[in-house]
Design a protein around this nucleic acid. Structure first.
Lengths: 199, 199
DNA sequence: GTAGTCATGTAAGAGGTTACATGATTAG
DNA sequence: CTAATCATGTAACCTCTTACATGACTAC
């Protein structure tokens, strides 16, 4: 049930359309959650029916309209309850780690390929997260600027601080995965050395 | 589609019942994947129908029987294909990180509570993973011993090496989360200091 | 006019969670 | 005999993915 809370949280910045939300989620740049539009639109309808958000049909061009969603008091309350609630920790389930545990059943070249891919993936991730993080540090990040503009000076350190912390967590994770993949490559080297000697 | 591959991988060690698999998954101690028995039993039936596993009804006590599953050649092949295939990277989706990004909407005490919980959770995780890891290092781990006994000496370093690497990844992750939660607590301290001064 | 973006949906299916349900076996 | 463990299922429900589908708007 986190999609709806991610949506509520997004809407605290400003009213937006489902399409806008999908952009924020898809980029994965601006956000810590992710969802396709096929999940967002139905959820928004449900949330509207439950009174958590309010939809306003606003014109777009000449004939078309779009649905601009905003938070209701009830939505704000729901968000507050979610923030206060203990969050259960889902079981770990990492396909890459699982697969790695059985690489002895394939060959060294396959293992190397996978670790290289892991490395490449998390390097890209790291770059993107780091960029977002920098834009939070110097308060260039558009959504953040918008939020800050709505709050008094005293609140700014907290608002930016928590956002930065969240992304720092992702950055640290990416770094850890890079280190891990490098250890994986070292292991492959070691094993292929042994292999060569024993031949 | 990873549950079936986790099952196939497990079965490379020895034939076992669905119940046994559930134990391995539930403990989460012995494994990098997790699934309840309600998911395992139907999957096993499907896999049997597809010829990936073979079920043998063996007696249990006087009247009862149990279904002992083992790998077929086809199952082994499927496992090999999976190991060789590129694995897509699922989008990041971490509720705790998401929630953290919006702690300014609750209060400092709530933020502190959440970070403490995060700390406690990952410290427990770290202990458990570290224990498993140690049992791999000195080759006490029962499933690992079983595997090693089926392979020639030369393969042992690879078999144990990949298992160790996988758990080292989890250990590193747990450590990173602990560090992160501690930074969270420091942030709360800093913010409450500012708060006190500005009052 | 046309390509790219804006905008909103539906539907089938896979994967996972939680709860319900049952019964034999074993250790005390 | 009784409680814990062994053992196997079903069913409802939720979440997420992938694919199908449509049409208006805007910049060129």
């Amino acid at each position: 049930m986190s999609l709806r809370h991610a949506i509520l949280a997004l809407l605290t910045a400003e009213p937006m359309t489902g399409y806008d939300m999908a952009q924020h989620f898809d980029d994965a740049v601006a956000f810590l959650w992710s969802a396709p539009h096929s999940q967002i639109y139905p959820e928004l309808r449900k949330m509207e029916a439950e009174g958590l958000v309010l939809a306003e049909e606003v014109p777009r061009g000449k004939r078309a309209t779009k649905r601009l969603y905003s938070l209701t008091d009830q939505g704000r309350e729901e968000l507050g309850e979610w923030l206060a609630a203990d969050e259960p920790y889902p079981p770990e389930r990492d396909v890459h780690r699982l697969k790695t545990a059985y690489f002895e059943l394939s060959d060294l070249e396959n293992a190397r390929r996978h670790f290289e891919a892991h490395l490449a993936h998390y390097r890209r991730r790291l770059d993107r997260w780091q960029e977002v993080l920098n834009s939070i540090y110097d308060r260039r990040h558009p959504l953040l600027r918008l939020r800050l503009s709505q709050w008094p000076e005293e609140a700014h350190d907290a608002i930016a601080g928590y956002k930065a912390l969240a992304f720092e967590g992702e950055v640290a994770r990416a770094r850890a995965e890079i280190d891990w993949a490098e250890r994986g490559l070292e292991l492959v080297e070691r094993l292929s050395g042994v292999d060569a000697v024993s031949r």
